[in-house]
């Protein structure tokens, strides 16, 4: 049984299901209450669950994450909304020095079931600090889980899985894809859907593996369709920490080629880590070096330039061509 939902509405429905399932689940953030969030992802929750569970906070990101840590210590499961990717940074101290380390510092006595929802990525013609892809910072931080969704089905289930996790989860929402709509099976069991840490083969193929996540999955699928010369396998990475390497390496061992595409900047980006790991594990199967297609190592440009900055269909295909040039 399915319902047609956009990614934004699917997250909203997932949040609602989580709040109904567990009274300890809370929403916190700027404008998440009456307004329902600037992207309306928490729409209707304030009305139905009240101000005690859907908390409009003062405009202070460190304060939001810091108080969420205290709430978690008291037994709550806060779902924090950071309004835009670029506004995460005031909360960096609480996230990196406190949230991520609390379990280990307490030798397991304190759990931190905090979900940090962050709309991320570019492509919406926004002003500065509204189009960034900060996932590498999170991936580099021990103690955090980092996941991102590319379709409504995953959006609905992964937000619920993230909320049930006893670890802090950075939940990255591809803001330019919020309005993508497909059918979601809301009747499935949370225990039977794909686990939170798994990658997913989004399109099978035999000649080259193309890795993407979040907003780039759609671009990768379009590229695979457009390349009529090769059979491209597209993998939606889904989880950036931990990364599901068995799924990735099994694919690369079959295809012999790997292209990784992301909106994050090239140097030290998730693609670099994946390339290193795949090179270690698949060295004798590789027909070409691992190719990365990423944003340039510059600050995110003015929005009139973003179509050149973001890896698009053609740049992904250019990356695929480079892999086949060997």
């Amino acid at each position: 049984m399915g319902t047609n939902l956009t990614i934004g509405k699917a997250i909203n429905a997932g949040l609602r299901a989580a709040m109904e399932h567990d009274p300890k689940v809370l929403m916190m953030g700027e404008d998440v209450g009456r307004l329902g969030g600037v992207f309306r992802v928490t729409d209707g929750l304030y009305k139905d669950f009240g101000a005690d569970r859907v908390i409009d906070t003062p405009l202070a990101e460190s304060g939001i994450v810091g108080t969420a840590i205290g709430m978690a210590m008291r037994g709550y499961r806060p779902v924090v909304e950071i309004q835009f990717d670029g506004f995460f940074f005031p909360a960096a101290n609480q996230t990196f020095t406190q949230l991520a380390k609390m379990r280990r510092r307490s030798a397991g006595k304190l759990a931190m079931p905090v979900v940090m929802r962050i709309p991320y990525g570019g492509g919406i013609g926004a002003v500065e600090h509204h189009s960034e892809s900060p996932e590498a910072y999170f991936q580099h931080t021990a103690g955090l889980r980092v996941v991102t969704v590319a379709n409504p089905e995953d959006a609905y289930w992964m937000i619920q899985q993230a909320i049930r996790s006893d670890d802090p989860v950075i939940f990255l929402e591809p803001k330019r894809r919020y309005y993508e709509k497909t059918e979601v099976d809301t009747e499935a069991s949370i225990h039977e859907v794909t686990p939170l840490g798994s990658a997913r083969v989004a399109r099978p193929g035999t000649d080259c593996t193309l890795l993407a996540y979040g907003p780039m999955v759609k671009t990768a699928l379009q590229a695979a369709e457009a390349d009529t010369d090769h059979s491209i396998e597209v993998i939606d990475v889904r989880s950036l920490s931990p990364v599901d390497y068995p799924t990735i390496t099994a694919s690369v061992k079959r295809t012999g080629r790997l292209v990784v595409a992301h909106e994050a900047t090239l140097t030290g980006g998730p693609g670099a880590e994946i390339a290193a790991r795949v090179t270690e594990e698949c060295f004798y199967h590789l027909e070409s070096p691992v190719i990365r297609v990423a944003a340039f190592d510059t600050p995110y440009p003015q929005s009139r330039l973003e179509e050149h900055y973001l890896p698009d269909l053609d740049r992904v295909l250019d990356g695929v061509d480079r892999a086949f040039a060997y």
Partner: peptide, 22 residues
């Protein structure tokens, strides 16, 4: 636990107190 990064724990206390209210 002792908190070394100065001031961070004031927010944890406040969040914990918000949990006490709830």
């Amino acid at each position: 636990l002792y908190t070394i990064v100065i001031g961070s724990q004031a927010l944890h206390a406040t969040g914990y107190a918000m949990g006490v209210q709830r």
